[in-house]
């Protein structure tokens, strides 16, 4: 099993088992009925991430030259754009899907297989759509908030989306196992290194990191789902 896949499975397993969990202590936020459980998972995450992963992410950002980091990031970003186009299309977002498809074509052909992000310089915005948002566009509610160690904040809906993404590849389609594992490893490493400035910011800004991350995540996803035009009755989600 590979890292992303394992993480994705963990999310799915959580989504399934948590449905049967009893809610005890009064939840602080209606979006987070499993807060006590989530908080302990957050502690686990902090312990593992802080000890083993964060130092590596910091070193990577510091010592790996920016052009190398950007190239690696662009490669995976180009794959994300393909999924953004597909899920956008399935959500009826023609403009965004079109932009992302255009980005994939341009970056793959003119950007050496996605290594250079030519499309952004050309003014085609990245859509950042995904399965979780697609489910949201279909009217599926976000479900309870979850904090998954080594993955981060999510919801039942977004977590299910992440599982769907892990199964639909394209890395999972790579048949050579060592190559596939390396690709997973680099993808996960890139994602974590990209998140490091956010970790730094949270360290500086948050009084209670758990609450801060939860509120940021839920605000962010809601904003993305409604393209910034959040209907008044959904504002508190």
């Amino acid at each position: 099993m590979t890292a992303v896949f394992r993480r994705a499975c963990a999310v799915g397993a959580f989504a399934l088992t948590l449905g049967g969990c009893a809610t005890t202590a009064g939840p602080m936020s209606s979006a987070d009925p499993y807060e006590p459980w989530n908080r302990s998972m957050f502690e686990v995450h902090q312990a593992i991430d802080g000890t083993f992963i964060r130092p590596v992410a910091k070193a990577y950002n510091e010592y790996m030259p920016a052009p190398v980091r950007d190239t690696i990031h662009n490669f995976f970003s180009n794959i994300d754009d393909l999924f953004s186009a597909i899920t956008g299309l399935a959500s009826g977002r023609m403009d965004q899907a079109g932009h992302d498809l255009g980005r994939v074509i341009i970056n793959t052909l003119a950007g050496f297989g996605g290594l250079i992000d030519v499309a952004t310089s050309g003014g085609i915005p990245k859509g950042n759509w995904d399965y979780g948002l697609m489910f949201g566009a279909w009217g599926i509610p976000q479900g309870p908030y979850l904090f998954v160690p080594l993955w981060g904040p999510t919801t039942v809906r977004d977590g299910t989306g992440a599982v769907a993404r892990a199964f639909t590849g394209p890395i999972s389609f790579v048949s050579d196992v060592p190559t596939r594992n390396i690709m997973y490893g680099v993808a996960v490493g890139d994602a974590r290194a990209q998140a490091e400035p956010t970790y730094d910011m949270i360290d500086k800004a948050a009084i209670d990191k758990y609450t801060f991350i939860r509120r940021s995540y839920l605000q962010r996803r809601n904003y993305m789902l409604y393209d910034g035009k959040i209907p008044p009755d959904k504002e508190d989600e």
Binding site: M28, S29, A206, I207, D208, T211, F212, R214, R215, S216, Q219, R220, N222, Y223, M224, G228
Partner: peptide
Amino acid sequence: VGGVSLVTNYRDE
């Protein structure tokens, strides 16, 4: 920032 309101964030905190 990206839909995350500073004021709303701190309201919970």
